[in-house]
Amino acid sequence: MTNMLNVAPNEMQIFYEKERIRTDAALMREYCKSDIKEAYQRKKEVRHELQREARKAQYDDIVVAGNEIIIRKRNSWIDIPERRAANFKFRGLFPLISSDGDGGISALELEIMDAARYVYLIDSKAGRGGYLLRKIMAVGGQILVDAVKDQENFLRKFWVAILPLRTDAVMVPTHTGWVSWGNSAFRFVEKGATLWESVMKAAK
């Protein structure tokens, strides 16, 4: 206290000026820290909003190019390279009709490891992703995406994409021997031929 009383007025003024500057500097540092935190938080919120909008803008196209099945992931902001979607190729989709005139079943022909595989499908179920996944996996088909729900979603889109590619109906005999084949014609069906009953069982 005695030392403070002995300080010259101009020195006191300098002392208080230094204290004011130091205090202002400390306040400015705190302000800057707060400002940086707020700026970071705003940037984080903007980034999350952009990510949400990007997900909304993103969708998949399923394209059958030749025999290849391709996923074209679309985004209204950027172009994303296309990629193979499955370990199989598409070779055809054929509505089936029995020699007695029954229908409601289709044959999906796939190529897996250079070999033809036939997937028999009940038409009323064929648009269901889970049903298609089970049937295609049963003949060795694989969908090249991870989540099961994404595989099912892909197959629903795949079915929509190939429906317009269906050919004329293919007749399947109901029994061996002489079979009525339409237009008053008959055809002899050998033992071991694929029959309508086995097709119906395979489609379940």
Rank of each mutant, 00 (worst) to 15 (best):
N183C: 09
L132P: 01
A185P: 05
D35G: 08
N10T: 13
A115H: 13
R29E: 11
A86C: 07
T23N: 14
V160C: 08
A138Q: 04
A65M: 13
M1F: 10
V172H: 07
A202R: 12
I112C: 02
K135L: 01
A169K: 01
M137Y: 13
G130A: 08
L93F: 04
L110N: 00
F15Y: 14
G66F: 01
F94C: 06
G177T: 00
L5D: 15
A107D: 12
T2N: 14
I78D: 11
K44C: 11
V189P: 04
S99E: 00
W77V: 14
S98T: 02
L5K: 15
M28R: 15
D168S: 10
T194V: 14
K73Q: 11
Q41G: 06
I21E: 11
R166S: 14
F188L: 07
R84C: 09
R29C: 10
F94M: 05
P173T: 07
N75F: 00
V46Q: 14
I21P: 02
E152D: 06
N3M: 15
I105N: 00
D123Y: 01
P164T: 08
T176L: 09
M171T: 03
S76C: 06
A57R: 04
E45W: 10
N6A: 15
E68R: 15
I80D: 01
R84F: 02
N87V: 04
A107N: 04
L108G: 05
R166G: 13
L50G: 08
A57L: 03
I21R: 03
E11F: 10
A147V: 03
V179S: 02
L96A: 02
I62Q: 03
F154R: 08
Y59V: 05
I122E: 15
S99A: 04
F186P: 05
P95A: 06
A65I: 12
D146S: 13
D146E: 09
Y120W: 03
D24P: 03
F158T: 02
L108R: 02
A193T: 08
R117S: 10
S106D: 06
D100R: 06
M171N: 04
D114C: 09
I136D: 04
S184E: 08
M1V: 11
V139H: 05
A39V: 07
R74N: 10
A169M: 01
G129Q: 00
E197Y: 13
D114I: 15
Q151H: 04
I69P: 00
D79W: 10
W178S: 09
W196C: 03
T176P: 01
D123M: 05
Q13K: 10
E197D: 12
I78T: 11
M28N: 15
A126Y: 00
D100F: 05
T174Y: 12
G129K: 01
A54W: 12
R47T: 15
